[in-house]
Design a binder for these strands. Structure first.
Length: 480
DNA sequence: ATGTGC
């Protein structure tokens, strides 16, 4: 079946609902022409159309320029559902609940760091376990875990693993309202306890970067970002705990008579928000999100320790302050203007970043005047970005932007195309030092198996949903 | 993504 795609703006494409009776609304994808031609090569546009058939969808089913094939819903997708008449779907959040990004700024220049770069990366590699099934150095018990699930970053502040400033710069202040540990299974708990403070595998990484260029000096200053300074970017989520929560609820929904029948793909399994099972999933999903915030925060704590040990500098000279920590796999209750009316919706962002401009009450106090930072990891050989939301994100995409470069080659295709040794030597030639838990992941994560992040951010900027603040290039990489 | 799958 040929999917009908109409270009309706410089960076905007429409998949009209008229082409399939089951679609309740249009699909909209933001991309430039070259990204759109590669998007058409996988089946993610069909997934955008599938999401458009779900009950209670408000506005279009949206795809970002980094869109690619995912479980049921596309990765790089945004979909909002009416709070009273709509659904929640675990596949619309993803298996890695609160997969997200944390960015740390520093007072160091690359010259300050260069002589010690390998040592710092090696020390981080030692202090932050990575790889599938990695176990951490933070020893927590069941009571701690319960507090983490219920309170998120507040637990880390109480334990001395987070500062007040860290909390001020974490989305939701690191604590999701409505988190309910009672609905997190013991299996999920048992997977989470040994894994807290670990990076995981796949596209999860920790990168030492240098700010190559600041495009928006005023906003960069407010974010603590300076050209030529070193930053650290962390990309990970809620590890096996969130994965188990997703698994548990997908299984329950598939067995429940309360789930939404008649969806075009079994992986779109959903429940009306009003139902008990939906509310239990929401409580568990928010608790897993709290675990994700704490997981990244413990890694921040380990990164600070690694720099202190290797650089022999006091904390105040290192200036390793949070810029922001955000979730790009999550569903949130928000109010949005739709056709001139205020509507309460559940916004699913799966591989999509909230990008609220100044003026939204959800912005953290520190970022009221600017809008919060939008952190966009690219690939390990090219670049990452910091953006900020524009008012256009509210009118176009329920206050959302892209979340990264987006895969272009499948993992198997990447493995056969890029041997690990070649990836390592090419990175070395660019002055990038890599430590990875497995060779397999080095091939799978080869830079050119990703779309060009420059084009992805140019597309969301061109579409008027976010503005580019700064471009960061990698110098040290830790990979699962 | 994931104690990686039939």
């Amino acid at each position: 079946m040929e999917i009908r795609v109409e270009k309706v703006g410089g960076f905007k494409f429409r998949l009209p609902s008229s082409q399939w009776p089951r679609m309740r609304t249009d699909g909209i994808v933001y991309a430039n022409d070259s990204l759109m031609s590669s998007i058409k090569n996988d089946n993610s546009l069909l997934q955008v159309m599938n999401v458009a058939t779900l009950p209670g969808i408000v506005g279009p089913s949206i795809g970002m320029p980094d869109i690619h094939w995912g479980y049921g819903f596309p990765i790089g997708g945004v979909a909002a559902f009416d709070y009273d008449e709509g659904i929640v779907s675990p596949g619309g959040v993803g298996y890695d609940i609160n997969c997200g990004v944390t960015l740390i700024r520093s007072s160091l220049t690359l010259n300050d760091l260069r002589p010690k770069l390998k040592e710092v990366v090696d020390e981080i590699f030692r202090l932050v376990p990575s790889g599938v099934g990695s176990k951490g150095r933070y020893s927590i018990g069941h009571q701690d875990l319960n507090n983490i699930l219920a309170e998120g970053i507040d637990w880390a502040v109480n334990r001395g693993y987070a500062t007040e400033d860290d909390r001020e710069k974490t989305e939701e202040y690191g604590r999701m309202e409505g988190a309910d540990p009672a609905h997190v299974s013991s299996e999920a708990r048992n997977r989470g306890i040994p894994q807290i403070g670990t990076l995981g595998a796949g596209n999860h990484f920790l990168e030492i970067q240098v700010v190559e260029r600041v495009m928006d000096p005023g906003t960069a200053r407010a974010f603590g970002i300076e050209e030529g300074k070193v930053t650290v970017m962390i990309h990970t989520g809620s590890r096996g705990l969130g994965h188990q929560v997703a698994t548990d609820y997908i299984k329950r929904l598939n067995e429940s008579s309360d789930s939404v029948r008649d969806v075009p793909d079994r992986q779109l399994t959903s429940a009306f928000l009003k139902s008990r099972i939906a509310q239990e999933y929401m409580g568990a999903m928010r608790a897993a999100a709290n675990f994700g915030f704490v997981n990244r925060q413990l890694i921040v704590n380990s990164v600070r320790e690694a720099f202190r040990r290797v650089m022999h500098l006091p904390a105040e000279d290192l200036g390793l302050d949070l810029v922001y920590s955000l979730a790009h796999n999550i569903a949130k209750v928000e109010e949005h203007d739709v056709d001139g009316k205020k509507v309460k919706v559940l916004v699913h962002r799966k591989g999509a970043t909230r990008a609220f401009p100044a003026g939204r009450k959800e912005n953290n106090r520190k970022y009221r005047e600017t809008g919060h930072p939008v952190l966009i990891p690219g690939d390990m050989g090219r670049a990452s970005y910091v953006l900020v939301g524009l008012p256009g994100s509210l009118s176009e995409s329920f206050g959302s932007s892209c979340h990264g470069a987006g895969r272009m080659l499948s993992r198997s295709k990447a493995t056969s195309t890029y041997p690990a040794s070649r990836v390592i030597s090419e990175l070395e030639q660019k002055g990038i030092y890599l430590r990875a838990a497995s060779k397999k992941v080095v091939s799978e994560e080869a830079p050119y198996s990703y779309k060009d992040v420059d084009e992805v951010v140019a597309s969301v900027a061109g579409a008027g949903i976010s503005r580019i603040v700064s471009r960061h290039i990698p110098v040290g990489v830790v990979k699962g």
